[in-house]
Design a protein around this nucleic acid. Sequence first.
DNA 1: ACACGTGTTATGCG
DNA 2: TCGCATAACACGTG
Length: 249
Amino acid sequence: MPELPEVEIARRTLAEGALHRTIVAVDDSDDWVCRPHEPGEIAGALTGRQFTEAHRCGKSMWVHSGGATLGLHLGMSGRIVIDAEPAPNSWDRFAVEFEGGGRMALFDKRRLGRAVLDPDHDDLGPDAAEVDRDTFRERVGRGETPIKARLLDQSTVAGIGNLLADEVLFRTSIDPRREAETLDTTELDALRRATRAAVRSALDEGGVHTLAFVIASRDGDGSCPRCEGELERAKVGGRTTWWCPHDQG
DNA sequence: ACACGTGTTATGCG
DNA sequence: TCGCATAACACGTG
């Protein structure tokens, strides 16, 4: 589920449902998801406090509590759930209970999500939906790595995942295997604009699953939405990649 | 049974 | 130290 748009939706869920409620209990017993702290350490830092603000950069979120900051990452399968019954099979990997009932949980079957105290975001690039034109040009348009791998590198620009990368490369007719430094400024500017537009659209429609090329490649019959030719599939930057060999030559 | 996956990070190599 | 590639991580799903 989670790429930048899903995480922004999760942040809004936190902002609307988890702020200004007194925390009376914390379940941080999953010592794989709750790291690197000892069980009870997050609980000790948050119990009795209220979350006051919910922030996001790329796919990382953090909430202020007046004292410690709680960092949340959804990993590949995580979701934020507010005021629901505890999930079966301990799929709630982290949870806080609020005074008077109700709770906030990180639901994550695969356990690749994270709940951390005072998260370190030093290795995170600027948010992919906010980065300015010149910064995008200089950070994305360098190196011999495939442009898709560059877009997926969270320290270059934060928030683009596997599906969004395919979508914006399709929208700009750029071959995902091109070396990043071979892109000219026109192509880089187009990539940035396509990213902003795709994020806006995904936010409006409910996630990256709703984007046309994502549907065509993952759920559809594998034909190009533009020329109807057959899409190609291969590993690029270690990830499954779809593109149109005709339009993205 | 077995490979795959919307993410991150540790490790290895030039 | 840097840039890049790959494996590993956990575990449900098809």
